[in-house]
């Protein structure tokens, strides 16, 4: 028996039986979870990775003509994939910063108010506990062409109604609002936790020095909150890169004119449909994986930098 297990024996006499029974227990507790991870995450990941290098792969016959980079060449030269990438990046660049700014303002206000705190906390928590499908129905009602809430207001004011859900320009706009709305609660919760970690004495010190609310916000609150802000920005970016369900739930297709065709939509369509191309789907997945990996590394670096 090794020295290590002798030292860590849970206070009992070290003997051979103990070690084996311990392994059994570990397996019992970890087993089900590990099984799930292996079947649904690790195996598919490895398989997708391998699949992306198999040329002319058929999933039903499990045949392929050879190993190579043909799938990547095809995907990276596919104008549909590239426009999907562009649409996705645009979504990330718009939704993540705007939702972050709104969340910071709301979180700071929530942190400073004592009145209505309970009501406000329920209010901002609502989107998180409501299913996105239900929210998408409400959004569809709000932005509907005939009888939609906003169009009713617009026509009452004597303006011509806008086809929010049916035109490329406006459908994009509705998607962004929907995306921002849905990630607000999670973002606010994390930011609130970050705010509560800031020692109130810093605010008092700044006030004694004559700092006004805005000075305190820019010089104290935001810098001290920056580790949380960095974390939230990265986590939100990662999930925004994987945007698919919001589009699907709002429009049942990639936007009214195929204008909201994101990377995941590309992968989804390549996997299904009448002419599935599994190799292309796998290659696109791996490309997306590397984009997200870069962001994850970025988060590591940022967190180290903002560790006071």
């Amino acid at each position: 028996m090794s020295k290590k297990t002798k030292r860590y024996n849970g206070g009992r006499d070290p003997d051979e039986k103990f070690e084996t029974s311990m392994i059994g227990k570990i397996a019992l507790f970890l087993g089900p979870f590990m099984l799930g991870i292996v079947i649904f995450t690790i195996y598919p990941f490895i398989n997708a990775f391998l699949m992306s290098f198999k040329e002319n792969f058929s999933i039903l016959r499990n045949t392929f003509s050879g190993w190579g980079l043909a799938n990547y060449r095809k995907v990276l030269n596919d104008p549909i994939f590239l426009s999907g990438l562009k649409t996705t990046i645009k979504y990330v660049v718009i939704v993540v910063p705007i939702s972050l700014i709104i969340s910071i303002v709301i979180a700071v206000l929530l942190n400073n108010t004592r009145r209505f705190k309970a009501i406000l906390q329920t209010a901002y928590f609502m989107p998180l506990v409501t299913s996105t499908a239900a929210i998408s129905l409400v959004f569809r009602f709000i932005f509907a062409n005939e009888g939609g809430l906003i169009n009713k207001i617009i026509t009452t004011l004597g303006q011509t109604q806008i086809n929010f859900l049916g035109t490329n320009r406006w459908s994009e706009f509705v998607l962004y609002i929907f995306g921002i709305w849905n990630i607000l609660p999670f973002t606010i919760i994390l930011l609130l936790a970050g705010l509560q970690n800031i020692d109130p004495q810093y605010y008092t010190a700044a006030k004694v020095d004559g700092a006004k609310t805005l000075d305190i916000f820019t010089n104290i609150t935001v810098p001290l909150l920056s580790p949380t802000i960095a974390l939230v920005a990265i986590v939100n970016s990662i999930s925004a890169f994987k945007v698919f369900d919001y589009v699907f739930q709002l429009y049942n297709k990639p936007g009214p004119g195929y204008n909201l065709y994101t990377i995941i939509y590309y992968i989804y369509e390549k996997f299904g449909g009448t002419k599935p191309q599994y190799g292309h789907a796998a290659a696109a997945s791996i490309v997306l994986f590397f984009i997200i990996a870069v962001f994850t590394l970025l988060q590591r670096v940022l967190q180290k930098k903002t560790n006071y």
Binding site: D199, Q201, L224, S226, Y308
Partner: peptide, 17 residues
């Protein structure tokens, strides 16, 4: 701030960043 006082806190409250 209008009183023009300088205050040193018990745990100093230096801005960590």
């Amino acid at each position: 701030d209008k009183r023009e006082v300088g205050l040193v806190f018990q745990n100093y409250a230096l801005y960590p960043h």
